[in-house]
Design a protein around this nucleic acid. Structure first.
Lengths: 142, 142
DNA sequence: TTTAATTATGTTGTGTACAATACAATAGCA
DNA sequence: TGCTATTGTATTGTACACAACATAATTAAA
């Protein structure tokens, strides 16, 4: 196999591995909030942008309803969100923070700092990595 | 929130997203071999390095037995591998390619090329990304 | 040599992740 | 208005992914 062909394995596997490591870094930190990483991503969107449709959340996180529906039901069970059908269009389910969910935002402000610490790399390294990843994501998604 | 703190979200989420996109790129290509991406990774190891313990595969892929045992049983059902306990140490399960599994190696040589094409970026971009990812992986794992 | 610790794998439970499908509600159009 | 296509969500089935625990075999130590 030529060197170029090997390269795809040598890049794709580290991408796959790094994502698992990153989720693993979040795990003990988010455990204090009783959240998983995908659940945290949903909460971030609600904290930043307020009430959202299921499909809006799905578009932003690139997750489909088969993933989101059970995930959102778990957040609902924890009393962090409410799921209500829109009166105007009954197909739409609005996802809204509860008071508990809103309150969690304060505790969650500590998460990024803890992650940055455990990543243990320079801001310059992170920014370079972000640029490289965004380039490839744009190529793949366009 | 300071810009630096936002950075962790702005890097970690793209890492998480990119990994899903990459696995998604492999999906239609590997479908022709009736393999998933993690199954393909196991087959790659067996093609390159021959018979392995479960734990050796787990170490190389950073996967635990709760993931590997059912995955390996699925590969066994497809007659691509055999699982045999070692006579010397009966705790050890040796994972060995069948003739069918060995034969698949030829068809699979086309996979890296197809992935490189669909990634649609330059080799330089890929190598830069690989360097960035490997740096962070080393930091996290050390 | 009996016991204790370690090792290797398996099992169970929870939680993504996505394809395929279903279905109800809305929108667009003839 | 009625019909059709589209939209938004839910359901089902398959497959990871990992924590926690269980179990059996081996090794090490007293």
């Amino acid at each position: 196999m030529s060197e170029n062909l090997k390269l795809s394995n040598q890049v794709c596997f580290p991408i796959y591995s790094l994502a698992k490591e990153v989720v693993g870094l979040y795990r003990p930190i988010l455990q204090q909030l009783d959240l998983t990483y995908p659940q945290y991503l949903v909460m971030l969107i609600l904290w930043e942008e307020g009430t959202q449709n299921v499909s809006e959340i799905g578009t932003k996180l690139h997750l489909d309803s088969g993933t989101l529906t059970p995930l959102l039901k778990r957040l609902e069970q924890k009393k962090l969100i409410e799921r209500n059908r829109s009166a105007q269009d009954e197909r739409i389910v609005q996802i809204e923070l509860t008071a508990d969910g809103q309150k969690m935002k304060t505790a969650a402000t500590q998460v990024p700092e803890q992650i940055l610490n455990s990543l243990n790399v320079t801001v310059e390294q992170l920014e370079a990595l972000k640029t490289g990843i965004d380039n490839i994501l744009n190529q793949i998604r366009k």
